[in-house]
């Protein structure tokens, strides 16, 4: 996967470049709009990460110009602006995504995966998900562990499904809120944790090996090994 990273803060650029390379991306980095444009024209990329506050121009204008030049790859927008303005919303509707700074690396990786998945959406969706001995029947909305049915509420099933789809990868609390409850909020109480505790109580009941791990300060991960 070829990725073009446009970020003027060198520290963040360096960190992202290393982390993204570790995650398996081939990263090209640019510190300003002109370099980014040149790199985008020279070779094609599967996905772009663009910071909105570039030294020589506005990130949005860069994206719009690249789109005019025929860019089709999805763009993940990084914004230090708090309220996301309408133009970003417009881009979001065009299939792109945004993330406000500061962000968790796990969330950035998850959103990149989402964008790429959206971009080459494979036709038929699986009707069953399987992670180790955990099995989810997406049509009947039923989950079982080692063949024993788990007694989950519909909401818990959605949460577990989300964890399964990202098995082996970290999901943050804000990702869970966004994907499971459809809200971009940051509660200053532990509401998400309580949901996870309850789910864990049912999924990781006595006798089974623990599947849901908490990574403090980061989020949760469903073990797939």
């Amino acid at each position: 996967m070829r990725l073009l990273l446009v970020e003027d803060e060198l520290e963040i650029q360096g960190f992202l470049q290393r982390s993204l390379t570790e995650a398996g991306y081939q990263v090209e980095a640019a510190g300003d709009g002109r370099t980014a444009e040149r790199l985008a024209i020279e070779s094609s990329h599967d996905v772009l990460i663009v910071d909105l506050g570039l030294p020589d121009q506005d990130g949005i204008s860069l994206i719009l110009r690249l789109r005019q030049l025929g860019l089709t790859a999805p763009v993940l927008i990084l914004s230090a602006r708090r309220s996301v303005d309408d133009r970003v919303r417009g881009l979001e509707q065009g299939g792109d995504d945004y993330l406000t700074k500061p962000f968790a690396l796990a969330e950035l990786l998850a959103r990149l995966r989402n964008l790429l998945k959206r971009n080459n959406a494979s036709g038929a969706e699986a009707t069953r998900l399987r992670v180790l001995d955990l099995e989810l029947d997406l049509l009947r909305r039923e989950a079982s562990r080692s063949g024993t049915r788990l007694n989950l509420t519909p909401q818990e099933f959605v949460l577990l499904e989300y964890l399964c789809r990202n098995a082996g990868r970290v999901v943050t609390r804000s990702m869970i809120l966004d994907q499971v409850w459809g809200m971009r909020i940051q509660p200053d109480t532990n509401v998400v944790d309580v949901h996870i505790y309850r789910l864990r109580g049912k999924v990781d009941a006595d006798g089974y090996g623990p599947l849901i791990r908490t990574l403090r300060g980061v989020g949760y991960v469903l073990r797939d090994r």
Binding site: E9, E11, I12, A80, R81, P102, F103, L105
Partner: peptide
């Protein structure tokens, strides 16, 4: 927001890397 966020992002990134 921008002036506070950029260093916050850098610090958070370093912490995550250390982790």
């Amino acid at each position: 927001a921008h002036d506070l966020r950029s260093p916050l992002t850098a610090v958070r990134a370093k912490l995550e890397m250390a982790l």
